[in-house]
């Protein structure tokens, strides 16, 4: 806007007594005006962008999986997330921290079949196209290796000896009937 104004400045400002104004000062004021407008409306636009992007409250949550001491080294347990996603939680090493575990999606990144753990071969195996992954979820054989696709990992944490995984909570199927509880009495909503 400021730029357009400049091109036509001579005509429009004709009636105003700023003809003798030094050019630098006029340019500065115009830039300042443009900057002010950009700052205000720009911030507004950024917030609008965040509004559209965020989609609101996290649709993921920390969910209890198992007690840490109930999973032996190399042992895997199948965990189903509230949205139905199937996870394979495996203890990789001795210890009490989340680093000792991995939580891998059991959906093969190739075409979406279910992989399973083969203890004798120490690998996750996808029966659809003979894809295989090591215990960390890295591809070792088949189409996933060719395409360098790994099994999706979910974040884990340990609290008081209990293992939690962060997983998606909702599916489209239960949109609208999510349970809400415990709004603080009289608490502000806006």
């Amino acid at each position: 806007m400021a730029e357009h104004g400049e091109a036509r400045g001579r005509v429009s400002d004709g009636g105003e007594p700023d003809g003798g104004e030094p050019n630098g000062r006029r340019l500065f004021l115009r830039a300042a005006m443009g900057g002010g407008l950009a700052a205000g409306y720009g911030t507004f636009a950024m917030m609008a962008g965040k509004f559209l992007y965020s989609g609101g409250g996290s649709a993921v949550g920390w969910q209890f999986v198992a007690t840490v001491d109930s999973v032996g080294i190399g042992e895997s347990i199948a965990y189903a997330a509230p949205n139905g996603a199937k996870l394979v939680v495996t203890r990789q090493s001795e210890g009490e921290t989340a680093d000792c575990f991995t939580a891998l999606s059991s959906v093969c990144p190739h075409l979406g079949c279910q992989v399973h753990w083969e203890p004798q071969n120490e690998r996750f195996f996808c029966p659809c196209h003979n894809g295989a992954f090591d215990r960390e979820g890295n591809p070792t054989e088949g189409p996933p290796l060719a395409a360098r696709q790994i099994l999706t990992r979910f974040p884990l944490k340990v609290e008081n000896g209990l293992l939690y995984v962060e997983t998606p909570l909702t599916t489209l199927a239960d949109a609208g009937d999510a349970e809400v509880r415990g709004a603080a009495p009289g608490g502000p909503i806006g």
């Binding site: 917030m47 509004f51 965020s54 609101g56 609208g176 999510a178 909503i189 806006g190």
Partner: peptide, 18 residues
């Protein structure tokens, strides 16, 4: 629920609604 969602969950939702 969608109004509640806008007001409580979406970033700046309360602001734009207000």
């Amino acid at each position: 629920e969608s109004i509640r969602f806008i007001t409580q969950d979406v970033a700046y939702g309360w602001y734009f609604r207000s």
